[in-house]
Amino acid sequence: MSVTFVAAPKRLLTMTVDGQTIKVPEGTTLLQACQQRGIDTPTLCYLENLTPVNVCRVCVVEVEGSRTLVPACSRKAEDGMVVKSDSDRVRASRKGVLELLASSVDLSLASPEVHQWMERYGAEPDRFGPSSAPPPGNPRDRARPGEHVPADGLAAATVSQPAKLDNDTYIRDYSRCILCYKCVEACGVDAQNTFAIAVAGRGFEARISTEFDVPLPDSACVYCGNCIGVCPTGALMFKSEFDMRNAGTWDESKQTITTTICPYCGVGCNLELHVQDNSIVKVTSPLDHDITRGHLCVKGRFGYQFVQHRSDGSEAQQ
């Protein structure tokens, strides 16, 4: 006899999104309600396999009766709620948030959607002036909370800084970091429970850091690479990809993706092998896979060198 588990039925709520009345089950977020209406809502810090932190504020929508805009990713629908996802206030805020981000962070490797949203909302990050030159060294890692050199306003401050290269598996280029907290969540209770990184500092100098900014090999990092898997801007990147980009050989148009199952243990994680020129250049896992939810361990993520070991003893061309 087979048993089917049925969840308790959820109450249906009636709400209005952009003038259309819809019914959604209790517990639905405004983001899901917008998706149900086919409305493309920009998100940066949201990912379906992580707890929403609602910090990027690019998904904000207007809710009638609410003094400020509310984050669609985490706000739950309520009966009778009237939501506007494309009002002037919403468009202005989304434009502003994208401008502020793009003027302070290198978004060149963010997904194509981010650039489409910037175009849709007419974001002009240059409005704040030319970007300031990166300061020598990386004073951000030593910045003291509550102190800063007063601005002269002639150039817009950025988080520009050298990439951190301290191990053979992945790099951390925090000049691309939008502080979406995803890597911290993936390293913590949402996936790995390793807690090697956290947000340190505050304000514009808030940053992702190990304790005392020690290099990863001295930290609790176990190199599962789940932080890379969730990073939306390329701040965290396979060392192989970083090196190929620097050498000018990274070419996604020449890459194929092969889905397979990790051979190391019996869990059965799905792997997506990104292959260029007959070499594996990076490994990911699908977010919607019911075992991995996109997360892997160090072996599945980085232990692929044996595949490229040829019978004649040579290694595949990197």
């Binding site: 609602n54 910090v55 990027c56 504020r57 690019v58 805020s93 502003g96 948030v97 502020l100 981000l101 003027s103 302070s104 909370p145 509550g146 102190e147 800063h148 939008i178 502080l179 947000v199 500092g201 505050r202 304000g203 514009f204 100098e205 808030a206």
Partner: peptide
């Protein structure tokens, strides 16, 4: 600027 916690983009930047 000194006292912003840095969590959300509008205030941090």
């Amino acid at each position: 600027r000194d006292e912003s916690c840095g969590q959300c983009v509008p205030c941090r930047v």
